[in-house]
Design a protein around this nucleic acid. Structure first.
Lengths: 100, 100
DNA sequence: ATTTCATATGAAATATAATTCATACTATGA
DNA sequence: TCATAGTATGAATTATATTTCATATGAAAT
């Protein structure tokens, strides 16, 4: 694909346009967690979660702290909170019933 | 796919996670246009543009006025403007170099 | 009423992304 | 230093989205 000036927009939103990643984001809203805990709670495969966490991290939506062998992921609320607010407002106003 | 409470998030952002749709959004930022004008300016196929406009409309990102035979599309700036602002801020702060 | 312009639509083809699977890595405790 | 817990990675598979193509629709002009 050609790389244009608008490529970052695509990547940014594409990252958020995935249900599994929203499951992770939603879970991390309640607090930071390591990979194993995320895996157990959501019931997905470990490698799947890792792939998604990697993507979320590269896009700056989550951060990671290292504690011994574990990696503890935290949500970037500075971005996610206002984003959620904006989205909810939009959906309520403009496409209450359906989308897509 | 299972339909969860987080499905709308997925649809909302997935719609924005597409370069062609951003080309359209970007163009409409300068002013309202009918389909033919969008097609000519962007150089894509007419049916491709129609498909994307349909999706953008269903998700409330554009609106449409009818004038004789033409359909004139307008950008929903109420949503797009703050969204762009938020995104630019995020990219500059957290993932300046790359994403994905 | 027929043609033409402007646009939409559905299905088929293609491209891209998500998921799984097997395996590798790395820090720690025995 | 060996084993293991915790996590990451790459390639193959599968699922999903985009694009194209052919055609339909609908309103206006002739």
């Amino acid at each position: 694909m050609k790389r244009t000036i608008r490529e970052p927009y695509k990547i940014f939103f594409e990252t958020l346009g995935n249900k599994t990643r929203w499951d992770i984001i939603h879970l991390l809203q309640k607090g930071k967690l390591n990979v194993t805990a995320i895996v157990k709670t959501l019931g997905y495969e470990q490698s799947l979660i890792s792939h998604h966490l990697g993507r979320l991290e590269r896009c700056g939506f989550v951060g990671v702290e290292i504690n011994k062998k574990e990696r503890i992921y935290t949500l970037n609320k500075k971005t996610i909170k206002p984003l959620l607010k904006l989205m909810d407002k939009h959906i309520n106003r403009y496409c209450k019933n359906l989308c897509r």
